[in-house]
Design a protein around this nucleic acid. Structure first.
Lengths: 156, 156
DNA sequence: AAATTTGTACAGAATAAACTGTACGTAAAT
DNA sequence: ATTTACGTACAGTTTATTCTGTACAAATTT
């Protein structure tokens, strides 16, 4: 009868993981976070590896990625040598913040590249008498505006 | 000197495509949309295939997917037998709407699954005297709340 | 009716992403 | 000082995704 709980826990983790994958986590990262979150424990890499049945290497890279996005925290306990991690709380704030950063960073990159291209067009002589210039310019502006809007949305 | 424009167009498409991939399009779908958007033309599958240097099959599946998400439209011209497609305009509305639907649909699924699990726990006797029940219940509620918040955000 | 053209299903190839095992540097324990 | 334990780099394997080629049904042309 013990396994019914095991089983239920697994189901919850699976569902939850699938959702947070949508925030840009790999399957394993998602599962790992879900697991840590559900069992409110601080765990070592070996324990995680054991619990999820995945390699220790995977745990190392996954947990590092989660930590970089501020989804888990390293915990210090006197006398304990191994690295200990636990999931951060306040799910909504956690994930929206992480996601926001991801988007803003990406969009900013593209913005830079696009305005650079725009400059090039201005400077270039080749385009001066091209009949397609107006269309390209218009479209380019629209695309840049689009990026601004997306940026604005996530900055909200 | 003609290829400078070709080249510039390609760069714009590449940048643009990378952004819209983030809305959940495959690389090819993204590139295809970007291309259609930039050259304000209505095109046949063969023309797209030729223009992007990819198989016609890919064009067929990609354009169908784009159409399903309402990102491109089929265009009818009397006497023309082939399917013609063009990119829809109003980028921002287009993509946010498409994205929103994708999220809401996914989140709704998980919500259903999670509340179903919750019901099961209520009904089950196994859990009645489990010492871990309170923790699981608390966490499950938190996760469900999280889903509600995400849902609300995208419903906005 | 026969022949051609067009779009897509489907199986399989190519590419990309996720994951693992070994091997090693660093730090703690003996 | 030597040994043991720990985390991670890196190369390679596995798995999933994306893309292609062939084949075929439906529609149009001859």
């Amino acid at each position: 009868m013990e396994w019914e709980m095991e089983n239920t826990t697994k189901k919850i983790i699976a569902e939850f993981a699938e959702t947070i994958e949508m925030f840009g986590l790999t399957p394993l990262e998602a599962r790992l976070f879900a697991y840590l979150y559900l069992t409110e424990k601080t765990m070592t890499l070996d324990e995680m590896s054991e619990a999820l049945g995945k390699s220790k290497t995977s745990m190392s890279t996954s947990i590092r990625s989660l930590a970089e996005h501020n989804l888990v925290s390293r915990v210090w306990i006197k006398g304990v040598r191994k690295d200990l991690y636990q999931a951060n709380d306040q799910l909504y704030k956690l994930f929206t913040s992480s996601y926001k950063n991801k988007w803003l960073e990406a969009v900013e990159h593209r913005q830079l590249a696009l305005t650079e291209i725009k400059e090039q067009i201005y400077r270039s002589n080749t385009f001066k008498n091209s009949p397609e210039l107006p269309v390209i310019n218009k479209k380019l502006d629209e695309i840049i505006t689009f990026h601004q809007q997306v940026d604005q949305f996530f900055r909200k």
